[in-house]
Design a protein around this nucleic acid. Sequence first.
DNA 1: TCTGGGGTCCTAGGACCC
DNA 2: TCTGGGGTCCTAGGACCC
Length: 426
Amino acid sequence: MKAIIDCNNFYCSCERLFKPRLKNTPVVVLSNNDGCIISRSDEAKKLGIKMAAPYFMVKPFLEKHGVQVFSSNYALYGDLSKRVMETVATILPQNCIEVYSVDEAFLDLGHVAAKELHRVVQQIKETVELWTGIAVSIGVAPTKTLAKIANHLAKDNKEKSNCMLVLDTPGRIAAALKRTPVEEIWGVGRQSAAKLEKLDVKTAYDLKLMPEEWMRQNLGGVVGVRLLHELQGKPSIGIDEQLSIKKMVSCTRRFGHALTELQPIKEAVATYASRAAEKLRRQYAAAKVMSVFVIPKELKRGSIYKPLEPVTTHIKLPVPTSITNELIKHALVLTEQLFEEGTTYEKAGVIFTELVPDSSLQGNFFAPQAKYEQRNLMSMVDNVNFSMRNEKVKFASAGTKKLWKMKQELLSKRYTTRWGELREIN
DNA sequence: TCTGGGGTCCTAGGACCC
DNA sequence: TCTGGGGTCCTAGGACCC
């Protein structure tokens, strides 16, 4: 059996943890740049506030209903996420836990006897809630996809389920599938849902009865077939316990406000490049390819929001590297190539791909001495920044005025990771 | 004025090779 | 009039997820 454990309204729960007075008050958390809503408390959901709603459009409504609004505080959420995962790891072996996202983990319960399942699930839930203060939901079933469905249903009916649901018999599975609309299935997005709609395939139960060949041809080839098997209870997506090296690392952001000059755009790109380089070094990787993109601002935007078109270019690096100043140097050249006088830009990003293990880190006998020194410098920069926690050491090209910096007007404190922002009790 | 950011996996089709 | 076929590698882009 497999399980998914998932933190309820995670970002909102984190904010509430340090502000108990907000219990029973509607709370929402905004995306970067205070752009749109990415987490809602139950009370906020009840008010009808939609996921991803643009903040500026719903702001009057939020004010009217006394909704508490926060900018996203990733230092806080990241730390609490780590605590939740570590708590689970005190109950299950590490190789049975796949951390799937900041607020979710898949669990392999293959070693748990059938009659023990309920008890173990309950123990995990109670321990996490007691030790971290974050409420969680757990769904259990023979496959990951079915466990996701179980989790979904558990949350839909919190009072009855106590946020736990175990689908351990064919009858329970069938009943759950019948209650699940196709668009709520993990792996069925908007496009697929639209196709299924036309065929009158409405529930997960209907989908489970589709022929394999149809799935192959219409729902993404092998992806569709895999989904079908998962719904049928045949595990086709395994538990991936290892933290593997990522295949891509990036840092991309919308500017606080649109930019028309090359200089501040270069500063922003240099900053993104150095962020992304830090991420590279954190997983002991170096990049072979660096892409830079900018997104021109669409001056007249229709009523329907459509994705923005990036202008991209990339460079194959002569030698894979994670050294910030080398990467910045190339990034700035690419930015100059992309920039067009007279155009207004609203976003940019740096993406590293074709990552390889950073051999200079382990010490490469044949590497020139200068490389070592650079790598050591990088380690020092990383260490200083990590301990000082506020980008004390920066590269000059990243600029000091930050005209492009994102908006975060409603930021809460980093209670758990900065001594200076510790919660005080009076 | 104001609509996030960071990922993965897969497919189709072109280029190239023998 | 007739002009192969199969394999591999690469890239761009679609779809999806949290």
